[in-house]
Design a protein around this nucleic acid. Structure first.
Lengths: 198, 198
DNA sequence: GTTCTAGACCGACAGTCGGTCTGTTACGAG
DNA sequence: CTCGTAACAGACCGACTGTCGGTCTAGAAC
């Protein structure tokens, strides 16, 4: 073993930082989460943090990656075993709407990420995770919906943006003036029925 | 006139600050735009700025309001004189996609606003401007599209999120790996055709 | 015309934050 | 045992946001 105890401990510190950062970022948002607070809550020193991450954005990006990996995994779990492409797409979208209701996902993935990393970089990361799954599922369902191959990419983006918006509507609805979870799921169904008729 | 020259000058200072802030915010984004820079570029003193705005967020919000007012006005200009509700909706969406291609709109309205003001407050402001128009247009077009009244609100959000996403896709496309303006406008047409069949 | 008021404006200052830099420690290779 | 290096420590720096006491001047009051 070239490295072992040392690398292990380093990895542990890194993961601990990401875990603490993810929690604080979800609670307070990027701007109101200070590096100082992350250091204090994690008990890690300033030097250690900057040894693992070049800056605050990088720490945010690591947290984002962790959240994305988690929700992508949970989304595929919700669709596995479904043979029909359209049904699988529907199940995936519903699972996504439910997941995006969690504050961690909402704040980090949907609200802060575009502003912190830029829209371009944000979509690059999503493409490697949940959005990649969605695009593949839509590709598989394209024939059934009479969707031209050239439109699959744009419609994948449209569908992603739509379910994200619906998830945020549900989150707002917790206060009363919004949309209930049932209404949202009905809306997702209606949306897919209209986007992919047939 | 109870107040005149004094209030006039105050208003001018305020508007000047908003104008300078809008430009800088569009160029650098919220995080990289310092109050210091706004002060320097505008020639206004620190005290004057904080006399007009309680903080950086408030200055951002004022800039956002100004941009929203502008694009709402330009969007209605693109739809006036169109009698058919669906055609008016289509024209409005196409106008919006074109407007959202401008860096000022993209950066301030679409990328930074949700993170700075929070998603909820963001949509409140949009509801008073461009989004309000869209919802009204969709309401008018609901019958033609066989849309249930209960779904109009959610679908208005879906449509807004979709055209925003398409606009951002076009902006990315300027680099080459994205979507051309023609493809985007075709996609908007196709989207509306599927959302409102009939 | 003098006085008074209040809103517009000023700029020094405090506190915080992100990031840097110079060490120090200890694991593991040779 | 020695040495190199990854992991860590924490003092420090420049920049930034927001505050606070004070100044100036247009117009009201008389």
């Amino acid at each position: 073993m070239l490295v072992n105890k040392r690398a292990e401990r380093g990895q542990a510190t890194r993961e601990h930082l990401v875990a603490v950062a993810t929690r604080l970022l979800a609670e307070r948002g990027y701007e109101d989460t200070s590096i100082e607070a992350v250091l204090q809550e994690s008990g890690v020193s300033r030097g250690a943090l900057y040894h693992h991450f070049p800056g605050k954005d990088a720490l945010f990006e690591a947290a984002l990656e962790a959240v994305e990996r988690d929700i992508a995994e949970r989304t595929v779990a919700a669709t596995e075993g479904i043979a029909d492409p359209v049904a699988a797409l529907r199940a995936g979208c519903l699972a996504w709407v439910r997941l995006a209701g969690e504050p961690v996902v909402r704040r980090i993935v949907l609200v802060d990420a575009p502003a912190v990393l830029g829209w371009h970089r944000w979509r690059e990361i999503e493409e490697r995770h949940a959005f990649g799954l969605l695009k593949a599922a839509l590709q598989a369902a394209a024939d059934a919906g009479g969707l031209q191959p050239g439109h699959v990419d744009v419609f994948a983006h449209v569908l992603l943006a739509s379910v994200n918006e619906i998830a945020l509507l549900v989150a707002r609805g917790a206060g009363g003036d919004g949309v209930s979870a049932e209404e949202a799921e009905a809306a997702v169904g209606e949306l897919l029925r209209r986007l992919l008729p047939g």
